[in-house]
């Protein structure tokens, strides 16, 4: 079975691969008439998160996507995909805009984590994530989160409070990086492959834990094929979630997280 083909750490490496498509790819190949919207209206604009509105087939959707960039210049500009507080605040601002117009929200997650820096702390990195978790729990419009790369801890979860969670087959989603885990537990970051195995961070692990609802197969598929498979799953989910009343939707979202570790 293809699911057994890769070790957990091979999947971590695949998720981090510099050639792997990130948020912008899916925006470009999935949406029509996309308009990018910038800034948190507080302090700045974080290029590690690309956000805006476009059509998914004929349905207007708001997309919030982590993006690390391809070239070295772009990666510098996008802080290698590690969001600062402004990125999370921009995301929240645009999610609220989507809520106002009852427009579904799609989040693309792929980042080693929220940026760890002095300035990020001064501007409330913890608060920014906490506010997203809190507000997303009450957002009266469908939210679908797709982990397309590395889902790095709280910085990933800040776009991960949703009604339906989807992972690409080789994406990973973890409370801590395997390197971080290995260096804390065994004082040896080179044991990351072991840690990756034990952390149970693959898409199939998370599907079996009922933390994600869908896995999009990748083996033997081109990026375009993966993208179009994901698009049809997104359309199905939007159709299903849009049929719910706001109250049903929020109860459903609460229950989805409430059952984890209950």
């Amino acid at each position: 079975m293809a699911a057994e083909a890769k070790t957990a750490y091979e999947r971590v490496q695949a998720a981090r691969n510099g050639k792997r498509p990130m948020g912008s790819y899916y925006i470009e190949h999935m949406l029509d008439d996309f308009v990018e919207l910038h800034g948190d209206r507080r302090f700045g604009d974080d290029a590690a998160i690309v956000a805006g509105i476009g059509y998914l087939n004929q349905i207007p959707v708001t997309v919030i996507a982590m993006e690390r960039g391809d070239t070295i210049e772009e990666r510098m500009k996008r802080n290698f995909g590690c969001p600062e507080p402004e990125g999370y605040r921009k995301a929240l601002r645009l999610m609220k805009e989507a809520e106002k117009f009852r427009r579904p929200i799609i989040c693309f997650i792929g980042s080693s984590g929220a940026y760890c820096g002095i300035e990020a702390e001064k501007r409330g990195q913890g608060l920014a994530i906490a506010e997203n978790l809190y507000e997303m729990m009450g957002m009266k419009t469908p939210i679908i989160s797709v982990v397309v790369g590395e889902g790095g801890s709280g910085g990933a979860l800040a776009l991960g409070v949703c009604d339906t969670a989807i992972m690409l087959e080789n994406a990973v989603y973890s409370v801590i990086s395997p390197e971080g885990c290995a260096s804390i537990l065994w004082k040896d970051a080179s044991k990351a492959p072991d840690a990756a195995e034990h952390l149970r961070l693959t898409s199939f692990d998370l599907l079996s834990f009922d933390v994600v609802e869908k896995v999009i197969p990748e083996e033997g598929k081109t990026n375009r094929e993966i993208c179009s498979a994901l698009k049809s799953v997104l359309l199905d989910e939007i159709r299903k979630l849009s049929a719910m009343s706001p109250e049903e939707l929020l109860d459903h979202r609460y229950a989805k997280f409430r059952k984890i570790g209950a």
Binding site: A130, V161, Y173, V175, L201, F209, I260
Partner: peptide, 17 residues
Amino acid sequence: RMQEGIYSLMQMAKVSG
């Protein structure tokens, strides 16, 4: 708590709700 993996991370969302 990293020893509980993704289950720990998801508690952040659960409590927030």
